[in-house]
Write a protein that binds this DNA or RNA. Structure first.
Length: 455
RNA sequence: GGUGGAAUGGCCGAGAGGCGAGGCAAGGGACUGCAAAUCCCUCUACACGGGUUCAAAUCCCGUUUCCACCUCCA
């Protein structure tokens, strides 16, 4: 069985295509001028889940994810470059900012068990490639030099514009809802810049046939995906907000160059809300993975929470749901440990069917809960089914809570409490339990005496 | 104004025309010196109005409300 995903362009479920058994994938990566928040991470997780599901279906994946370290200026001329603004704020070199947040990005991915892409090309190292791509667009009559010295894509030269988002060129004229400020050099309101003239800028600019400047935002993904994936992308992944204008423009550029549909399947992940609102600085509800860790939650409880929702629905995350995930995750790991230590995998048809049908992770999770409670499935098989599912879910179900050696002082307290219990000295026993708890050790009693674990 | 979606119990949420998803919270019980953990039980919801059907949360039409995108955005 092959993986099917919802394709934004055709608006229907489509089987993932491949060349032989190799699936080429491209995922729009981060702009590294700040820490990725958990909403950003939802999209990166989506790419990981797709890659893992394709692997489960017996194919191989070649995944490319770009790193945008050339800040894009907003199309609005008054907009400020994010990378340069942040560099100013942290009073350091813009490339130092980029390296710092790029490192943080990789750390977050690893904490979320996201399997690394095969390549993370940096925009700053691909300027020549982007220039060559723009030159090709000139040759094919899709690009023109504006009278402000910047290079623009001629939207009207590309007939299929709007297929992904449903926006028509004439409907893109400014409506009531937003103010549109005209750029000087454009011939048409929907054209966009491929190369921006440096103007007064002195940092992060490069030489080009059109003079010093920097690449437009959309050309980056076209240049990299076509070059690194041989001109054809089977699956293209990104957040819903990139559908327009980014992916619409990317598609126009890429198809203009290749002369055919360059991307088979466009997959878009929906937004993650936090406590009812879109995550944003102004709403003050930006949550980082680091915040979870600081609250003592396993970072994978975020992954767990995200898995309990369909990637195409807006999802409302809260500390309650994260805590619930954390609890269940720990219980499942304990169960797996109790079910044995075999590494066997047992393919479960319901789980594979759910995962391969538009990545229905909630149904797969539901199936696991049924398996957990089943009285007909043996412990060995339960474990094998959970391990099978974990190949895609990636929540480390096989992890055994690390048995860090405890300090002699804590060991002594545990001994004292054990003795106090034997002597039925409940007062001393409770006091010692509180003391241990303040040291991060949770003591529980059972018929066989006390046991402990780390909080 | 254009475009893409959504509406399910106290909360989060899955739903495939027909056997009440599940989780969290809450209440009760078992176990326990007490807790914690665990287990058992309780809490029968689908925005509104029509329609199709033997049967609708699910399909169709209309209404209302909400969210997102419309040149910074995961």
């Amino acid at each position: 069985m092959n993986l099917s995903l919802y394709d934004t362009r055709s608006r229907e479920l489509q089987e993932v295509t491949s060349t032989g058994s190799l699936v080429s994938m491209y995922c729009c990566g981060p702009t590294v001028y700040r820490d990725a928040h958990v909403g950003n991470l939802r999209t990166f997780l989506l790419a990981d889940l797709i890659a893992r599901a394709i692997t489960l279906s017996g194919k191989n994946v070649n995944l490319i994810q770009n790193i945008t370290d050339v800040g894009h200026m907003s199309e609005d001329i008054s907009g400020e470059d994010k990378m340069l603004a942040q560099a100013k704020a942290e009073s350091t070199d813009p490339f130092a900012i980029a390296r710092k947040y790029e490192e943080g990005f990789h750390k977050d991915l690893s904490r979320l068990n996201i399997i690394p892409a095969h390549l993370y090309p940096r925009a700053s190292a691909s300027i020549d490639l982007m220039i060559a791509t723009i030159e090709e667009l000139f040759e094919k009559k899709f690009a023109y030099l504006g009278n402000d010295g910047s290079v623009y894509f001629d939207a009207r030269a590309f007939p299929g514009y709007g297929a992904i988002s449903g926006n028509r060129l004439d409907a893109l004229k400014p409506g009531h809802r937003f103010e549109y400020s005209e750029e000087n050099g454009k011939r048409f309101h929907a054209d966009w810049s491929l190369w921006k003239s440096a103007g007064t800028r002195t940092e992060m600019i490069w030489d080009s046939p059109w003079g010093p400047g920097f690449p437009g935002w959309h050309i980056e993904c076209t240049a990299m995906s076509l070059k690194l994936l041989d001109g054809h992308i089977n699956v293209h992944v990104g957040g819903i907000d990139l559908r327009f204008p980014h992916h619409e423009n990317e598609r126009a550029q890429s198809n203009a160059i290749t002369g055919h549909e360059s991307v088979d399947l466009w997959v878009h992940g929906e937004h993650l809300l936090f406590e009812g609102r879109k995550m944003s600085k102004s709403a003050g509800n930006v949550v980082l993975l680091e915040d979870l860790v600081e609250k003592g939650l396993d970072p994978l409880s975020l992954r767990f929470s995200l898995l309990e929702n369909r990637y195409r629905s807006q999802m409302d995350l809260s500390w309650d749901s994260l805590t619930a995930s954390h609890t269940t995750l720990r219980r499942w790991r304990k169960q797996l440990h109790a079910w044995g230590s075999s590494k066997d995998l047992l393919a479960d048809e319901q789980i594979s069917a759910a995962l391969l049908t538009d990545l229905d992770t909630p149904r797969a999770m539901q199936r696991l809960r049924v398996v957990e409670k089943s009285t007909e499935i043996t412990a060995h098989d339960k474990r094998a089914i959970f391990l099978y599912a974990d190949q895609v879910l990636g929540i480390d179900l096989d992890r055994v809570e690390e048995v860090e050696p405890i300090s002699p002082a804590i060991e002594k307290l545990l001994e004292q409490r054990s003795t106090a219990r034997l002597e039925k000295d409940w007062q001393a026993s409770d006091r010692l339990r509180d003391e241990l708890e303040s040291l991060g050790i949770v003591v529980t009693d059972s018929g066989q005496g006390q046991s402990w674990s780390r909080a």
